[in-house]
Design a protein around this nucleic acid. Structure first.
Length: 883
RNA sequence: GGGCAGUUAGCUCAGGUGGAAGAGCAUUUCCCUUACAAGGAAGAGGUCGCGGGUUCAAACCCUGCACUGCCCACCA
């Protein structure tokens, strides 16, 4: 077998990603004899190309899917993309704008053609990137939130909800983005700090010289004021309640009323109430039956104010109002004031709250049920700490504004009856899949469809049921088998936008939660903890990492990067160790494979552990395997990855392979076969356990090892239940000796090529046997020419000393030893021993410790004290000779 | 204003149920020893944010506080 010295990921990765797709390795069918394990991918927006967030999200899901497949589940991971509503429309709008095309001039139909063209040309970019990443998705099931079937699901859901009376139309205060020209739901508004001013304005009382001062951040909305509100307990204003004030500049009469929500301590304690521009004010107006006067239109320009203001932008109007108030002496003072201003989550334009006719979804019942199922652990958050934010959000949720004044999206399946002139009649609108033929009220046959489209998250919320064909009429086997899905993996930024809504819709339409587990992972940040963004220029492009270091490297680095639920910081440097790990795997495997050449009949079935090192590595392997599997099961992907790394590098390579070298290269074919069997077995188990994280390199090596089934389709090898802890302890003694001797060699600068002899003075007879039996280990790894065991050995001149594992070891180093260095070393040892004696003694002299600590703990301390005492004695003795 | 996380070696982070502080990177010394220099061996580096408490024993449990980050919220 020809294996390069440095792992060449490029050829390996290309080969396997192609293989998995072409051979439909991850395709799944209903199979009632097998348990399903299902994940639906969070559908990426079609504007997207792979960024670190996707890379993390999909890596974690792929790890879970591949692990479950190895465990024998019928796994299914459904791929797909999202049409992405505003985000996508914005991208195409911008592209057209560059070409000088305006969407309104183009018209709805032509614009949608452009949208579809764009979607068809670039919308699958991210899917091909997921293939490159090796994601074990079922590529026969690619879904798109706006394909025919998913569109049907959206209509079906809308019609059902409408007919239940849960979807209603109403004029309400909504979040309006003047740039996107659409309403947004409450969660689509992001708040940003903005430096502004607080203007204190005099509102004069009618027929009086008195006035009340209000404080506002939005003076330009004053033309929509319908009252001034104060707290009923505010002594300053009690006498003014019910009085009339004259609204400055327009001299309209408005009343001073009391409302308990007014904060006496803020501003002047008096609030100008503009019900059409502010949610709080709107509430006050509702409670007090106040008039609502629109002052800002959907273009962000003033209406209904004085003639000279009409058509001004908010900014222009503000400047003008302030100036006029100042001239008229109404402006008392202007304070600097920082506050949060709502911004569109897609284009960052300042949101104007304004009155608008929209479709709303009544979420009260759905929210209640969505909270219940999480309380009852029908769906479990990992980590659990996300349960509370989820619940709190649902508890305070207001009805969902689901209509958007966009063109790209699912057009609302509502039809209005129109008369011959094309004007809407007063007949009841009809929710329907197709244009109705006859009006139920007036028997008319002319209809127009609602112009609006649905919030993109409406179709996302249906994802776990729509991908399994809930919308299709035929009896649905797939939905029954694969739903509820097993786990949803996502970052915490879309718990509200998406996760909660899927639970609501899943319960509403299926009477069953959409997934058993929700695995919330962190958001990828740069090495300074900043969110990655193009504007900050701190983006680490996963494709670049894949190109430079390989996909397995990217995946491993991400898998290790953080504990569940915590944001992770990642930098170029963090990929180096993963890259090195891949190379280490390659070379260790290459070494085993080289030695396997020409050896036949290596059967996993009859592995016999002959030596201590064999028993030890099998015991460690068993321990590690349990730990890794448990970690995968509980979504502790970082623990699984790190455990594998450590085991492979330290236990397997640094110790077991090193200890096995002699036998591996031995002339004795029996001995050689025996050790290679274990080496190969351990390697295979590691490869299997690691394959979910690093599927490429493990698949390749697995194949080179001669396995017929590919690793992804293999089943976990049985661990040899070698779990005798005794062997781990025995090995520990030997390792301690080896390390002690290596330390001396290193301190004395003895070249690795130079073999030295060692005299082992036995202090603890119980250890003698193990070390004697395995003295070759010590000789080999500490590079000794010979070891002689005896009792009461006299210290040879010019020798170095190690007191370890029940031995006093002398290394005669005539001509090599540096007496001063040895002295320093021993003095340090001595100090440590003294410290230990002090600590242990004081513990053992403490009656409370003796009475209350478990006996095993007391024994441990006694042993420690004993060893320290021996060390102290032997080291001081030795120091005398050095003078 | 609430809620949630975090604070451990120079940097990035691990540390189930409390019993002598760990890794990677960086750093020092030695070594191209026939798998790997993207490597091997050895070392240096930490009063585990601060103050109380519980306990024989606290990085870990309880309680204050400080700082950082995130999310939510109608102080105009």
């Amino acid at each position: 077998m020809d294996m390069e010295k440095v792992y060449n990921f490029k050829t390996v990765e290309g080969k396997w990603s192609k293989y998995w797709v072409e051979n439909k390795v991850f395709s799944a069918k209903v199979d009632k004899n097998k348990k399903p394990f299902t994940i639906v991918i969070p559908p990426a927006n079609i504007t997207g190309s792979l960024h670190m967030g996707h890379a993390l999200n999909t890596t974690l899901q792929d790890i879970i899917i591949r692990f479950k497949k190895l465990q024998g589940y019928n796994t299914l991971w459904v791929p797909g993309t999202d049409h992405g509503g505003i985000a996508t429309q914005n991208v195409v709008e911008k592209l057209l704008k560059k070409k000088g095309i305006n969407k309104y001039e183009l018209g709805r139909e032509k614009f949608l053609e452009k949208m579809w063209q764009w979607r068809n040309e670039t919308g699958d970019t991210i899917l091909s990137q997921l293939k490159m990443m090796g994601c074990g998705l079922d590529w026969d099931r690619v879904a798109f939130t706006m394909d025919e079937s998913r569109s049907k699901a959206v209509k079906k859901a809308f019609i059902e909800l409408f007919n239940k009376g849960l979807i209603y139309r109403g004029k309400r205060l909504v979040n309006w983005c003047t740039r996107c020209g659409t309403a947004l739901s409450d969660i689509e508004v992001e708040y940003a700090d903005e430096k502004s001013s607080l203007w204190h304005i005099k509102y004069p009382l009618k027929d009086s010289n008195e006035y009340i001062v209000i404080a506002t951040t939005r003076p330009e909305t004053m033309f929509g004021d319908t009252t001034v509100a104060v707290n009923p307990d505010d002594d300053r204003y009690k006498k003014l309640l019910g009085k009339i004030v004259m609204l400055p500049l327009v001299n309209r009469e408005i009343k001073i009323i009391a409302d308990y929500t007014i904060d006496k301590t803020f501003g002047t304690g008096a609030l100008k109430v503009t019900p059409s521009c502010d949610a709080v004010d709107n509430e006050i107006a509702r409670r007090n039956n106040l008039e609502v006067i629109d002052v800002i239109d959907i273009n962000g320009k003033l209406i209904n104010g004085p003639e000279s203001y009409k058509g001004l932008t908010v900014k222009e109007a503000r400047e003008k109002v302030v100036k006029e108030l100042e001239i008229n002496g109404h402006l008392i003072k202007v304070e600097d004031y920082d506050h949060k201003v709502g911004k569109c989550y897609r284009c960052s334009t300042t949101i104007e709250p304004l009155m608008s006719e929209q479709w709303f979804l009544d979420v009260r019942q759905m929210s209640k049920k969505a909270i219940e199922v999480v309380d009852e652990c029908k769906t479990i958050f990992h980590p659990e700490s996300w349960k509370r934010p989820y619940t709190l959000w649902l508890e305070n949720l207001r009805d969902w504004c689901i209509s958007r004044q966009l063109w790209w999206g699912h057009r609302i399946p509502i039809y209005y009856c129109v008369d011959k002139q094309g004007n809407k009649t007063n007949c009841k609108p009809i929710a329907s899949f197709e244009k109705p033929t006859q009006c139920l009220c007036c028997k008319g046959s002319n209809f127009v469809q609602d112009e609006d489209v649905l919030d993109t998250w409406f179709s996302s919320a249906l994802w776990p049921i729509s991908v399994f064909g809930w919308q299709e009429d035929k009896h649905n086997e797939e939905l029954k088998y694969f739903y509820p899905t097993s786990v949803l993996a996502t970052g915490h930024e879309i718990i509200y936008l998406w996760v909660a809504r899927m639970v609501q819709f899943g319960l509403e339409f299926m009477k069953e939660v959409p997934y058993r587990d929700v695995f919330i992972h962190g958001i990828v940040r740069d090495k300074h903890g900043k969110k990655m963004s193009k504007s900050l220029g701190n983006v680490v492009d996963p494709r670049e990492i894949m190109d430079n270091y390989g996909t397995d490297t990217l995946r491993f680095a991400l898998a290790c990067a953080g504990a569940p639920g915590r944001d992770i910081q990642i930098s170029q440097e963090s990929f180096l160790s993963a890259r090195n790990f891949a190379n280490k795997i390659w070379n260790a495997s290459r070494f085993i494979i080289m030695n396997l050449e020409g050896i036949e009949n290596l059967d996993d079935e009859d592995i016999t552990a002959i030596e201590l090192s064999d028993k030890w590595i099998l015991a460690e392997l068993y321990k590690m395997s349990l730990k890794v599997k448990k970690a995968y099961e509980s979504y502790n992907i970082d623990t699984a990855s790190r455990t594998l790394y450590d085991f492979f590098w330290v236990k397997y390579c640094d110790w077991y392979i090193e200890l096995s070298k002699i036998r591996m290269m031995s002339e004795d074919l029996q001995a050689k076969k025996q050790v290679l069997k274990i080496l190969a077995h351990v390697l295979k188990v590691i490869l299997q356990l690691l394959s979910p994280v690093m599927p490429f390199i493990t698949s390749e090596i697995w194949q080179i090892l001669g396995e017929k089934k590919i690793i992804a389709e293999s089943e976990f090898l049985n661990e040899l239940k070698e779990n005798d802890k005794c062997n781990i302890e025995k090995m520990k003694s030997l390792q301690d000796i080896i390390i002690a001797l290596r330390t001396i060699r290193s301190k004395m600068n003895i070249s690795p090529a130079q073999q030295i002899e060692a005299l082992f003075n036995v202090l603890d007879e119980s250890k003698e046997k193990v070390v004697k039996e395995n003295e070759s280990y010590v000789k080999q790894l500490a590079k000794l020419s010979s070891i002689s065991f005896a009792k009461n050995i006299v210290r040879p001149k010019n020798s170095a000393l190690a007191v370890v594992s029940g031995f006093e070891i002398f290394l005669p180093l005539e001509g090599l030893i540096d007496i001063e260095k040895e002295k320093t070393r021993l003095l340090k040892d001595l100090a440590l021993a003294k410290q230990e004696i002090e600590k242990s003694t004081s513990k053992l002299q403490n009656d409370n410790f003796i009475n209350r600590a478990p006996s095993s703990e007391i024994e441990k301390i006694k042993t420690r004290l004993n060893e320290a005492n021996i060390k102290l004695e032997k080291v001081s003795e030795s120091l005398k000779f050095l003078d």
